[in-house]
């Protein structure tokens, strides 16, 4: 049911963990539904210098988190905000229909982390 690319990502996830000196954090999903994604980032001068994830969820949830971090690492905040769940699915060479929501969660986790960063920045000024 999973593509080789999905399997490769959930077996060898990239950027797994927590950024040490993160200044952006977003958590989406809930344990009751079986999916939680937490993204931490260090954003400097509008660029995502580092990003890491922690995910509780199925193989697809881990794979979407993993590839989403790869897709936004080194990108500007604006570029990262343009990341869609479709792009995540495409990068994974497809997901089973019942797993599409995992890609939505990945997109939301990125957006939540950036929103948190902007909130923090607004509070400082």
């Amino acid at each position: 049911m999973y593509t080789d690319r999905v399997m490769e990502h959930f077996n060898n996830p990239r950027n797994m963990g927590e950024v040490e000196d993160y200044n952006a954090e977003g958590t989406v999903g809930n344990a009751k539904c079986g999916d939680i994604m937490r993204m931490t980032m260090r954003i400097e001068n509008g660029v995502i210098e580092d990003v890491k994830f922690k995910t509780f969820g199925c193989g697809a949830a881990v794979a979407t988190s993993s590839i989403a971090t790869e897709m936004v690492l080194g990108k500007t905040v604006e570029e990262a905000l343009n990341l869609t769940n479709y792009a995540v699915v495409e990068a994974l060479e497809g997901l089973p229909p019942q797993k599409i929501h995992c890609s939505v969660l990945a997109e939301e986790a990125i957006k939540a982390a950036i929103a948190n960063y902007r909130e923090n920045a607004a509070n400082l000024t």
Binding site: C33, G34, F56, G57, C58, G59, K99
Partner: peptide
């Protein structure tokens, strides 16, 4: 703190065929 389908998928890659009753293993 772990999800069953992920366990099943990773066990599969290590040569163990098992199953789970987690939501993610169904639709």
């Amino acid at each position: 703190a772990v999800e069953g389908e992920l366990l099943v998928c990773r066990l599969d890659c290590k040569g163990v065929a098992a199953s789970s009753g987690s939501a993610c293993s169904t639709a």
